[in-house]
């Protein structure tokens, strides 16, 4: 079993050879690092290696589309209220613990995660809509 990050780092050379340095896969690996930095000390569970491999292989063909979605995300973020936007980005930042972000929002941890899930769905819907038009 291997994590997404390990699988993607293993494929890193391949992506670089294609000149696709800022590829999505690279981003995923980077995310795993950032997430790890954020959750330093927590034992994160990882995806099964065969599953991670499948995802890495399948998305290698979707790099352009995924990059478009990342670009569209900027305008989708602008559609959020300033309060929601800053709260969301705070929860992704490494400065504050998620408990602290939840506390500043006046929500319980569980409620904050629920809110976070909704914001992600909202953004995904928006991104898909933006890319489709």
């Amino acid at each position: 079993m291997q994590g997404v990050a390990l699988v993607l780092w293993a494929k890193f050379e391949q992506f670089r050879e294609d000149g696709d340095f800022r590829s999505w896969a690279m981003g995923v690996a980077r995310y795993e690092v950032l997430a790890w930095l954020r959750d330093r000390g927590r034992d994160r569970l990882v995806l099964a290696g065969d599953v991670a491999e499948m995802i890495a292989d399948e998305t290698a063909n979707d790099v352009v589309q995924l990059e478009q979605q990342r670009i569209a995300l900027q305008s989708c973020l602008e559609k959020l209220t300033p309060k929601n936007r800053s709260l969301l980005l705070e929860s992704y930042g490494s400065e504050l613990k998620i408990q602290e972000v939840a506390a500043t929002s006046g929500r319980s941890i569980a409620a904050f995660y629920q809110w976070l899930h909704r914001m992600r769905r909202l953004l995904l819907d928006c991104v898909q809509h933006e890319v489709a038009r």
Partner: peptide
């Protein structure tokens, strides 16, 4: 769906960083 989520999260983490 997983890839779309991870893509979003990568991007958000990047923007936040």
């Amino acid at each position: 769906v997983f890839a779309a989520h991870l893509n979003l999260d990568t991007a958000l983490a990047e923007i936040a960083a």
